[in-house]
Measured scan of single mutants.
Amino acid sequence: EPLWIRPDAPSRCTWQLGRPASESPHHHTAPAKSPKILPDILKKIGDTPMVRINKIGKKFGLKCELLAKCEFFNAGGSVKDRISLRMIEDAERDGTLKPGDTIIEPTSGNTGIGLALAAAVRGYRCIIVMPEKMSSEKVDVLRALGAEIVRTPTNARFDSPESHVGVAWRLKNEIPNSHILDQYRNASNPLAHYDTTADEILQQCDGKLDMLVASVGTGGTITGIARKLKEKCPGCRIIGVDPEGSILAEPEELNQTEQTTYEVEGIGYDFIPTVLDRTVVDKWFKSNDEEAFTFARMLIAQEGLLCGGSAGSTVAVAVKAAQELQEGQRCVVILPDSVRNYMTKFLSDRWMLQKGFLKEEDLTEKKPWWWHLRVQELGLSAPLTVLPTITCGHTIEILREKGFDQAPVVDEAGVILGMVTLGNMLSSLLAGKVQPSDQVGKVIYKQFKQIRLTDTLGRLSHILEMDHFALVVHEQIQYHSTGKSSQRQMVFGVVTAIDLLNFVAAQERDQK
């Protein structure tokens, strides 16, 4: 057995438009009618409502009807409940999964919650491996369901041993009777949507819809739904939504950006999952974080739909894509998950301010006199920076000697690579993860907040409520011999709460 199987392995699926269902090699399930009293909570997966979006479509000038398939009504709160249950049931049916076995899954959280929910009911041990950027709410729900959680670096490539995929496979090879159901490759993922989600949409719309818009992560949702719609409703256009920084969209030119990270969760990847059939997507749109969270908040405030950030991405694209539809036509959007997962993220004004998705003037509360002053007023001194090749031991000596707790790590040209902190280095040394002679590049981390000289002290204040420091950066445009230009970030300084307090105190003292 291989040590790991690539999540982007070539698909062996034989589905073709027009091929009889009787030739399918898979076990198919028909939607079942729910009894009045459910035998367990797993029976509350599927049969989610279709809700008309009344205000947002009109606000953006849509002539067509805009409908939302509300997947956050599933038992675990997301569309991923469907595939989690289906993968477990299919693994039980073919004898792969037996009582007492362990389920391991690399996930952005929602599939993990679905699997942990099913594992709690069915009696399996469950280990979820997820990147650090995923919300604390997801972690809390997983723990409450009895799952064990392993976190991995957000910026690790999918084929790196440190990625959530790599760590999951390492655990599988170490733990007896453990299984990775593997949402990236498992046919049960798109089949769950082909058999149930798509049929529900067709039934709820009486077979009449002209466009379907869905955000894409593993691709199982859009693949399964689109294949069924292509068979039953061939005139329906399928629109895929991919965040900026991901590479799922086609044509490839759409993916060209210097951005590699994004805040919206559960969609987009740096590889093409095996289950994603991009041939059934008629057109791709890219979405960005700001519009995703703005539209998610709009869905909550104006439509009462308590959905997550990827739902915002989907609707932001839908109001663009559906401009081509006329009166009497219908566009369906998939709202994948609930706001429950993001209470401390985009639902929080403070978080939105820190990330730059909300401006101070958007909030009406009274601010102190210094709130709208610029960061450049602080008069920061030149920063202490270190090269990635310097040793951890030497870096600790320098920081202690100069009285700093942290320093930016830059390359020879001064471009920011990340940050090192005294606390992080000492804990890594004590844990045996690094040696004093190791290069400081081994303990770089990139989960820090950046701020510009033109940003306000109010925004800085919000950042420092949650973080010990902020890195002050400025952009530099560099022209190359080819005539092309590129933008790079340079370090201007490091600012802490002490710097802000000293500035405010000094100004008030001078005024007296």
Rank of each mutant, 00 (worst) to 15 (best):
I238E: 04
G240R: 02
G240F: 02
V241S: 14
P243A: 07
L248Y: 02
L248H: 02
L248N: 02
A249F: 06
A249E: 07
A249I: 08
E250S: 04
E252M: 11
L254V: 06
E258I: 12
T260F: 13
T261C: 09
Y262E: 04
V264R: 02
E265W: 02
E265H: 07
G268I: 05
G268T: 06
Y269I: 02
Y269N: 07
D270N: 04
T274H: 02
D277S: 05
D277Y: 02
D277N: 09
T279V: 09
T279G: 09
V281A: 05
K283F: 09
F285T: 02
F285Q: 02
S287I: 06
S287T: 10
S287R: 02
N288F: 09
D289P: 05
E290I: 02
A292D: 02
F293T: 02
F293G: 06
T294W: 10
A296F: 06
R297G: 04
I300C: 04
I300S: 06
A301C: 15
A301Y: 13
Q302S: 10
Q302W: 12
Q302F: 11
E303W: 05
G304A: 05
G304M: 02
L305H: 02
L305S: 02
C307N: 02
G308T: 02
S310P: 02
S310T: 14
T314Y: 08
V319D: 02
A322Q: 06
Q323I: 06
L325F: 11
Q326N: 09
G328W: 02
I334C: 06
L335V: 15
D337P: 12
D337I: 05
Y342V: 02
T344L: 04
K345T: 07
F346A: 02
S348R: 10
D349L: 09
W351T: 02
Q354L: 12
E360I: 13
E361M: 08
E361C: 10
E361W: 12
T364F: 11
E365I: 14
K366D: 12
K367D: 06
P368I: 13
H372V: 13
H372R: 02
L373F: 10
L373W: 02
L378N: 04
L380P: 14
L380R: 13
P383F: 09
L384D: 15
L384P: 02
V386T: 15
V386Q: 05
V386W: 06
P388Q: 12
I390P: 06
T391N: 12
C392A: 12
G393C: 14
H394P: 12
L399D: 02
R400T: 02
E401D: 13
G403V: 12
A407R: 02
V410Y: 14
V410E: 14
D411L: 09
D411Q: 02
E412C: 12
A413T: 13
G414I: 11
G414V: 11
I416C: 14
I416A: 02
G418Y: 08
G418H: 12
M419Q: 10
T421L: 12
G423M: 07
N424W: 15
N424E: 11
S428V: 12
L429D: 15
G432D: 14
K433D: 02
K433H: 13
V434E: 14
V434M: 14
P436L: 12
S437D: 02
D438H: 08
Q439G: 09
Q439S: 08
V440I: 12
G441V: 07
G441L: 12
G441R: 15
K442A: 11
K442G: 06
V443L: 05
V443H: 02
I444K: 06
K446S: 12
K446L: 11
Q447I: 10
K449W: 12
Q450V: 08
Q450M: 14
Q450W: 12
T454Q: 10
D455A: 12
H462L: 11
I463T: 13
I463D: 09
I463L: 11
E465S: 11
D467R: 07
H468K: 10
A470W: 02
V472M: 12
V472W: 11
V472R: 05
V473M: 13
Q476R: 08
Q476V: 08
I477N: 12
Y479V: 11
Y479C: 11
H480N: 09
H480S: 10
S481E: 15
S481L: 15
Q487F: 13
Q487N: 13
Q487I: 11
Q487C: 11
M490P: 14
V491E: 09
F492L: 11
F492S: 13
V494P: 09
T496Y: 02
T496W: 02
A497V: 12
I498L: 12
I498Q: 04
L500S: 08
V504P: 02
V504G: 12
A505D: 14
A506T: 13
Q511P: 02
K512I: 02
